[in-house]
Design a protein around this nucleic acid. Structure first.
Lengths: 113, 113
DNA sequence: GACTTATTTCGATAATTTCGGAATTATCGA
DNA sequence: TCGATAATTCCGAAATTATCGAAATAAGTC
């Protein structure tokens, strides 16, 4: 991951509602959630939620898939892990335990609902 | 770590110069760097760098210590790890490999230059 | 004390981000 | 095709954040 992408991901996450949304999705796992479920949980006006989702999307922190009238959103674990790795890169002059971060993977890639 | 602190850390890191500064410090290890060294590396006017450092300080992402005329700044690895842990908390409904993050520790706490 | 270097605070201007109502697009079922 | 539901785009006022010169503070040297 290069700096630009990391910055985009970090600014995306540096907002109350977006951080909450992302964490909900991370905890929801590979099944993700619909925009509507998210909207209800976070209690935001639709336009506001969409604006936030667009920022998370642009940062590639979430994925989208339309399922009929509903849009299903999922956390992008690869991008999340890439961000964590970026932050800790070459940590401590390489002298200490600084393995490349490997934290969370979606169970089987492409798992559906 | 609670949400408020995580948010503060994320916004602190979501800026070009601050991210660069923090990563320099992470890579510098427990020895840290002086504000002056940082200023030269990042090529920023003193007032601007101080403003950024104040934000990283408020977020507890860095520590300070005055050494004579110089101020030595160090990355706060505990806070960094807490942030990573916060982001991945309860990842994937606990179904997959989601161990609490443990990424980087300062070699011996309190090591001085 | 006078001088030098290191860093911070102040404060004013400039740039960016946030919010959300209203209008719009997409999909489905009848 | 019509009506309902889901989600998005548009856009501009309000709030927040960034930038940095100039003045101030801190510490060391002579």
């Amino acid at each position: 991951m290069e700096t630009k992408a990391a910055l985009e991901a970090l600014s995306a996450l540096s907002h109350d509602s977006r951080l909450a949304a992302f964490r909900q999705l991370v905890q929801a796992g590979p099944g993700g959630m619909s925009v509507g479920e998210l909207r209800e949980l976070l209690d935001l006006p639709p336009a506001t939620l969409t604006a936030h989702l667009n920022i998370l999307r642009a940062a590639a922190l979430v994925h989208d898939e339309r399922e009929g009238r509903v849009i299903r959103v999922r956390a992008n674990y690869l991008q999340m892990n890439a961000l964590l790795a970026y932050l800790t890169e070459n940590c401590c002059e390489g002298k200490v335990s600084c393995d490349p971060v490997s934290v969370c993977k979606p169970s089987h890639s492409g798992a559906s609902r």
